[in-house]
């Protein structure tokens, strides 16, 4: 019993890590730069498929992939692929009004899903990619231990991304991002290349989402297009809003908290409802999460942890005005 609880907790935390990374990535884009990415799941999917192609086995029915390379190459390739995709998307849309970025990223996510679903020589279509290598598998007698080790890797990566982002947003670079977010014209008037900074922020944030996708793929060992639906993007939004956009710790906390609510409500519904009502139960959970988002937007838009309005380490503002 105790062991079951523990292994469930590890499983839960590993999944929370994927979301926490995406939430951090979105925070850099939206929280700090004001870029609204409606295609989080697209970049997550690119990362997952990139890692599957790089680390996975060769399938008889694909024309490309199956390189069977070690796990770290999968992670790096995932970040690179997602980053390159973001570069392309950003290049087209970041000069335009913010609505167009939202619409385009939404389109990107749909287009990526269609490629996953239809481009069988690369992705095996609806059949998905299976037997992806799980790192640490076989090192121990039971799966419980390699899950713990996987969690450690996830946490280390989160810590790395978190520390890097904290440094970045506090640096002069990060101050420019926030200046662009709060007043694009003023930032441009001060001689900052608004487009270049936006593009950098967008690419870095998306690369982290790609990293999360790779971690997901190699933990699950199997991915298919059904894993990458718009609901994922929505969950990440809610995490960031609940945690507090513009605050990296808030992004992490929101990820953990919302994922906790999400998986607990699933457990409760599975325990209470007959299996025939599970489709409805899943829908009800999404409606509930939607309500959480709406209520947060209405009553506490700054999230649990509000943004710290620190201009730089040297200068502290007395009391931030409410957003």
């Amino acid at each position: 019993m105790m062991e079951g609880m523990l292994s469930f907790a590890v499983f839960f935390l590993v999944f929370a890590s994927f979301y926490a990374l995406c939430s951090l990535g979105l925070n850099l884009q939206w929280g700090f730069t004001g870029l609204f990415n409606v295609g989080v799941v697209g970049f997550f999917a690119i990362g997952a498929y990139a890692s599957a192609i790089i680390t996975g086995p060769a399938y008889p029915d694909t024309l490309f992939g199956g390189f069977g390379m070690p796990f770290p190459f999968g992670l790096a390739g995932a970040m690179l692929s997602a980053g390159v995709a973001a570069l392309g998307v950003g290049f087209v849309t970041l000069r335009l009004r913010e609505d167009f970025l939202a619409i385009s990223t939404f389109g990107v996510a749909i287009a990526i899903q269609l490629v996953c679903l239809n481009f069988e020589p690369l992705t095996r279509g609806p059949n998905g990619m299976y037997s992806l290598p799980r790192p640490f598998a076989g090192l121990f007698a039971t799966h419980a231990f390699d899950n713990v080790l996987y969690l450690v890797v996830c946490l280390a990566l989160i810590a790395g991304v978190y520390l890097a982002f904290e440094r970045m947003v506090r640096s002069p670079w990060g101050r420019v991002l926030r200046a662009i977010r709060d007043d694009e014209v003023a930032a441009a008037a001060l001689g900052k290349n608004v487009f270049a900074f936006r593009l950098q922020s967008f690419v870095v944030g998306s690369a982290v989402m790609g990293l999360a996708g790779a971690l997901y793929a190699n933990f699950q060992g199997f991915i298919s297009p059904a894993d990458f639906l718009p609901i994922f993007t929505f969950q990440v939004f809610v995490m960031l809003i609940v945690g507090g956009s513009g605050n990296n710790l808030g992004a992490l906390l929101g990820g953990l908290f919302v994922w906790f609510l999400w998986s607990m409500s699933e457990q409760v519904m599975q325990a209470l409802l007959p299996p025939t009502a599970l489709t409805q139960a899943a829908a009800a959970r999404i409606v509930l999460i939607g309500l959480v988002l709406a209520l947060m937007l209405l009553f506490r838009p700054e999230g649990i942890l509000a943004e710290r309005r620190i201009v730089s380490r040297e200068a502290r503002l007395p009391r931030a005005p409410k957003r």
């Binding site: 409606v38 609505d99 939004f237 829908a283 009800a284 409606v287 999460i289 709406a294 937007l297």
Partner: peptide, 20 residues
């Protein structure tokens, strides 16, 4: 962007209410 996000939430809620 806040309005867009709210709309995205309404979209998912609406779709799932119909499903429900």
């Amino acid at each position: 962007i806040t309005l867009i996000m709210a709309a995205f939430g309404v979209s998912l809620m609406g779709r799932n209410l119909v499903m429900l």
